[in-house]
Write a protein that binds this DNA or RNA. Structure first.
Lengths: 122, 122
DNA sequence: GAAAACTACTTTGCAATACAAAGCTGAGGT
DNA sequence: ACCTCAGCTTTGTATTGCAAAGTAGTTTTC
């Protein structure tokens, strides 16, 4: 998909443009084998209720796949990134990068005052 | 303000984390002398109603200052970035950069597939 | 072996709010 | 006098983020 560089703000899809869901998507992107409900909860620091709701939102949008099963006697919900989810998320990130770049330029033209962070240390 | 790199998602303040308001803040950052209601509208591609509401939100949060006057007989609303607004926005952008970096790393560890954009071409 | 507590979620309810459409106010045109 | 237009503001609706309460099955406690 081509990003509209004139209006990258339009490309900031709401399904991703939400701190909690951004965290969920990032965590899932790094976990090829999916993550359990609790692993995800720990990674994103969410409450059960909120995570449940956000997962449902992401699932309805086709961005993640949810598999419910049992480990022994305990229920086990596992969440996977869907192919479409990964693709759409990449588009979102591209748009976000353009927006960020533009903002950084606007803040102090000729002198980007944002410190460059090193790769996520978590 | 120190950014919580463990949970940068918490630093994504809602007052900025909204495409339209992001656009407004970016536009204002680049305009030291403020922007008129209509200039801003053109820059952000917003409808009158939405812009009015977003400006009120930003003003309530103390992020912008709004000055209403007249040019000849016509009303002229001018919007300025407040000092606190600039500062808070910078914090927001820092958090956003961390989030983006982390997501990019998660998507394809060892190979950032996001194309690097050149400074805003607008 | 019944009751209480725990795990792993889901549902409900409320408050916030994004957006569009309608409204308002004064100025100019005819 | 009436219409229209510019420059905003207000209203109404539908969405939704979040916390708290609820559900179902399991294990522990006494």
């Amino acid at each position: 998909m081509k990003i509209d560089t004139d209006n990258p703000y339009n490309e900031l899809k709401r399904v991703f443009h939400e701190p909690s869901r951004l965290a969920i998507m990032s965590a899932l992107c790094a976990a090829a084998g999916g993550l359990s409900f609790n692993e995800l909860k720990a990674a994103c620091d969410l409450t059960d209720g909120n995570q449940s709701r956000h997962l449902k939102t992401l699932e309805s949008a086709g961005m993640v796949t949810i598999k419910k099963g049992f480990i022994g006697v305990k229920p086990r919900t596992t969440v996977f990134l869907s192919d479409q989810g990964r693709e759409s998320f990449l588009d979102y990130l591209s748009a976000l990068e353009i927006v960020l770049q533009r903002a950084a330029d606007a803040v102090q033209p000729g002198d980007v005052s944002l410190p460059h962070v090193s790769p996520a240390g978590a």
